[in-house]
Design a protein around this nucleic acid. Structure first.
Length: 881
RNA sequence: GGGUGAUUAGCUCAGUUGGUUAGAGCGUCUCGUUUACACCGAGAAGGCCAAAGGUUCGAAUCCUUUAUCACCCACCA
């Protein structure tokens, strides 16, 4: 007989189990085919791991992602799918470079890039990235992730670089990638451009200054950025504004504004100007404001760049300001306005500040020559697997992105995010993809004088120099679903696993990543990157706040793993977690699930004590007793429910159902009954195997450990077949009667303060259920701790007994001297009253003609039944009173 | 300014096409070591389902309005 230790200690087993899984090769679909777990032509399930940034370590959010993805992967693998979950990491260009720069500065290198130069600096970044990578891989393993490490990829490795260059060249040739002078989002701190999505907005209070450029200028304007007025080329007023209409079209020259440049200001009419805000007039700075830039395009205004990439004033602002920081210039302009009595008002207004999503520094919009992807440019899609788009049809990237979601080829869970997605696409502008960073994919474009060459490889002739810039990190991330499978080579993996089945990621990167993958894949392959998108929420602390170092509320997954185990950590991130919603987590919650892993361990321990020779392939034996039929009915139902729920990505609900069965039905009832009934070796063996399989995707370690304790190394749970539903449709009502009788007796016992150890005598007036009760009398006696139990067809309550009615059966407990007759009467009286009220409610309902006319017959029948049952119960209680 | 989500027991949440006497876990209280488990067992208390209208025979569930909170988007200087 096998025997487990008394308590489960995760720390003792987890690393060893992971190693066994690795050695088995079962994370790799090819090995699974070789070893007959699935066939080469079995249906596939594939998913890529959203590659974590190599900027440091994994946090609890990553742990949640891994738990969800591993659950689905293990489920599919056990179902016999040819299953691939492909790991990788993201070089996260701007984030990683900024992090390493900071670290080097802390080390005492004041200007790392200048001092080290491109090559040495990059070597530092790569060293850091490698270390982070190793940490991340280790953490993934700690969580139990069944990732196929043999296929691991990196967004910046050689294979992915080829994919990047190939796609770039293709887009360039299709005219989708172009270089142009545009107003871009510039981060003076990161010294790079940013995509529109990489700009965040922060509410703040800003000073709004109202003033005139000069005494002679007829209109006062209001601005929160006076220094930019040195680059103004117009003043915009609402075309319908009677105050200013007469000036529209006029031009004014302001000499030496604020002691700096001369301004040439044209008054223009614009519908968009709010007459009620400020003075109703806006100074137009085309070079440093997106909206002003558009006005300039429309009105043919000159663009004067007065702030450079360093965040300093240019000579266009005038000699006085040349080289001065923006903030200094602002103060000086305000000072000048005051001195010249031009400042009319200074007030505080709420304002939205644009900041860099990486460093939080204020964004400076400025004109710059950059590379863009045109999202509205038409091109021909040669091969289309997209419903509603023909091969050879003219399309735009925007159209492709919209189509695959509107035609339901891609399903987004929860579906409300479709709306968000469409809204984003509708407002999408050309994507600026060049970055002035060193760490990343170098733009595959070479220059020689005026000549420009774009190719997968460098031109062979002399005299070409490559563009110094790199690509937005999301460019390579956008290729992830197919670049990881070997594209541009036509590999077997690509054929087998693309499009991938599922993309599981956070809702916070739906634009950055999900949308870009859809763009890149539909364009490059003419197909979807994935069939389903499952968006998870953020993990927050128990008060719903974001976890942050400064708040000190960070829960580190490695800590909870070492304290409570990986399985407990996983469960705490899976149960109560629903798509699209944030999850509140506390250490107590993890602790609770640690208790459950131990419970499962002990359930197994007990069952093993009653299974002399456990077998892996045990068939469902003949069901002898009511409880046997009942538990197998429950098990069968939970197999069905859990399966469909996982299929529908209701992972939390599936886990709840399993827990309810395992802890409630199985442990609290069936195992207790098994102690009485005996002879259950095979059925217990069958239930144990099934339960371990069902729990495996949720908590792989403890289940695999129990499995290996039972069956040695002969077969691993990770590749056992997922259970099938038995065709047991046993009515559970009869068992419910037994269960409720036991509970009823226990309640009476507690109410009357009778210690559990004392055995009571009882009489059951069973009526039509005489046989049922007789057959289960031993169970009732044991679970309710009865001494004598008389089961008769009909009996009356004695004066020293307490009684209750359950399922048409009356139960009388002999309390002899212990009974408080008044209290007993009061209790029955109370129940009588609630029941009467209940009956009245149903009677009224049934007396309502409208109800009887309109409600479906099944509902009416149910009400009648409820009424009849309640009526019987009421009569019996009345008799007991 | 536009949009989305949340609001159910002290806390965290279920409640899937409208038909329950509204559920679970944690916490609280009472009792308890009966040959798996005190990381446990038995029992109990605790809810005008945010508010107001409406639709319906019937609403926690559908519609409208409101309130509070959270998040996303946006070029109000």
């Amino acid at each position: 007989m096998k025997e487990l230790s008394k308590a489960y200690e995760p720390q003792k087993y987890e690393d060893e189990i992971y190693k066994k899984w690795m050695d088995s090769g079962f994370f790799n679909p090819d090995t699974c085919v070789e070893k007959g777990v699935c066939k080469d032509d079995s249906p596939t399930f594939s998913m890529v791991l959203p590659p974590p940034n190599v900027t440091g370590t994994l946090h609890i959010g990553h742990a949640s992602m891994l738990a969800i993805e591993d659950l689905v992967t293990r489920y599919k693998r056990m179902q016999g799918f040819k299953t691939l979950w492909l790991p990788g990491t993201d070089h996260a260009a701007i984030a990683t470079q900024a992090k390493v720069e900071k670290l080097l500065i802390e080390k005492g290198i004041k200007e790392p890039k200048k001092e080290l130069g491109r090559e040495k600096f990059l070597a530092e970044v790569e060293k850091f990235a490698q270390e982070s990578h190793d940490t991340i891989v280790n953490q993934c393993k700690k969580m139990g992730s069944s990732l196929d490490w043999s296929r691991e990829a990196f967004t910046l490795d050689v294979e992915r670089n080829l994919a990047v260059r190939t796609v770039f060249k293709k887009m360039y040739d299709d005219g989708l990638i172009y270089r142009g002078l545009r107003l871009v989002n510039w981060c003076p701190h990161c010294k790079s451009t940013l995509a529109d999505d990489e700009v965040e907005h922060k509410d703040q209070i800003a000073k709004l200054y109202t003033f005139k450029y000069s005494k002679d200028f007829p209109i006062a304007i209001a601005t929160t950025r006076p220094e930019t007025k040195l680059g103004d080329t117009a003043v915009a007023v609402n075309s319908n504004d009677k105050r200013y209409a007469k000036y529209i079209g006029q031009e004014f020259v302001i000499k030496n504004f604020a002691g700096g440049a001369d301004l040439k200001i044209k008054i223009i009419g614009e519908e968009s100007v709010d007459m009620k805000f400020g003075t109703g007039a806006v100074g137009v700075t085309p070079a440093h404001s997106a909206i002003d830039y558009e006005m300039a395009q429309k009105n043919n205004l000159p663009i004067v760049k007065i702030i450079n990439e360093e965040g300093q004033m240019t000579k266009e602002a005038g000699e006085k300001y040349l080289g001065k920081a923006v903030k200094v210039a602002r103060a000086e302009v305000v000072e000048w306005l005051k001195e010249n009595n031009l400042l009319e008002k200074e007030e505080e207004v709420p304002n939205s500040l644009s900041i860099c999503y990486r460093c939080g520094y204020a964004i400076e919009p400025l004109p710059s020559k950059q590379w863009f992807i045109g999202v509205n440019k038409e091109f021909v899609l040669p091969h289309s697997n997209i419903d509603g788009i023909q091969s050879g049809e003219k399309v735009t990237l925007k159209k492709l992105m919209q189509k695959v979601v509107t035609n339901k080829q891609i399903e987004i869970i929860p579906d409300r995010f479709e709306k968000t997605y469409f809204h984003w696409i509708d407002n999408l502008r050309d994507w600026c993809i060049s970055r002035q960073l060193w760490y990343g994919h170098r733009i595959p474009v070479w220059y020689k004088g005026e000549e420009v060459y774009s190719g997968i490889d460098a031109p062979t002739s002399e005299g070409w120099s490559q563009d110094p810039d790199t690509l937005d990190t999301w460019f390579s991330a956008g290729l992830w679903s197919f670049s990881t499978l070997g594209w541009p080579n036509q590999t077997k993996d690509l054929k087998d696993f693309h499009p991938t089945t599922l993309l599981e990621t956070g809702y916070d990167i739906i634009f950055f990543w999900v949308a870009r993958m859809i763009l890149m894949t539909t364009y490059t392959l003419g197909t979807i990157p994935f069939e389903t998108v499952y968006l998870h929420g953020l993990v927050r602390d128990e008060k719903g706040r974001k976890m942050s170092k400064s708040l000190g509320n960070v829960i580190n997954p490695l800590d909870t793993i070492s304290k409570f185990g990986a399985d407990a950590t996983r469960l705490s991130l899976l149960l109560g977690n629903t798509p699209g919603n944030d999850l509140k987590l506390s250490e107590e919650k993890v602790e609770g699930f640690r208790n459950f892993t131990n419970k499962l361990w002990n359930i197994s321990r007990f069952m093993l004590l009653n299974i002399p020779e456990p077998k892996i392939d045990v068939k469902l034996p003949e069901l002898k007793t009511l409880s046997d039929k009942w538990i197998i009915g429950c098990l069968s139902k939970v197999v069905m429910d859990a399966s469909t729920m996982i299929e529908n990505y209701q992972l939390s609900a599936a886990g709840e159902k399993l827990r309810e069965f395992t802890w409630g039905d199985l442990a609290d009832w069936y195992l207790e009954i098994a102690k009485v009934e005996g002879g259950k070796e095979e059925i217990l063996n069958y239930i144990l195997n099934t339960v371990l399989k069902l729990w495996h995707p949720f908590m792989p370690f403890v289940t695999e450990q129990i499995w290996s304790e039972i069956y040695g190394g002969q077969r691993m749970l990770i590749v056992e077949k997922w259970p099938k539903q038995e065709s047991i449709t046993e009515n559970t009502i009869e068992f419910e009667t037994i269960r409720n009788i036991v509970t009823g007796i226990r309640t009476l016992r507690a109410d009357n303060k009778i210690e559990p150890i004392k055995k009571l005598d009882a009489t059951i007036s069973a009526g039509a259920k005489l046989n049922l009760i007789k057959e289960n009398s031993e169970v009732i006696k044991a679970l309710a701790r009865l001494g004598n139990l008389d089961i008769v067809e009909s009996a009356k309550k004695s004066s020293t007994a307490a009684g209750f009615v359950e399922g048409g059966v009356e139960v009388f407990i002999e309390l002899a001297g212990a009974i408080d007759l008044d209290k007993e009467k009061e209790r029955l009286q109370k129940e009588f009253e609630t029941l009467t009220k209940y009956i009245n409610g149903i009677e009224n309902k049934l007396a309502n003609e409208e109800f009887v006319r309109n409600a479906p017959p099944a509902v009416i029948e149910k009400e009648r039944q409820k009424l009849a049952e309640a009526q019987v119960k009421l009569d019996k209680i009345e008799a007991q009173l």
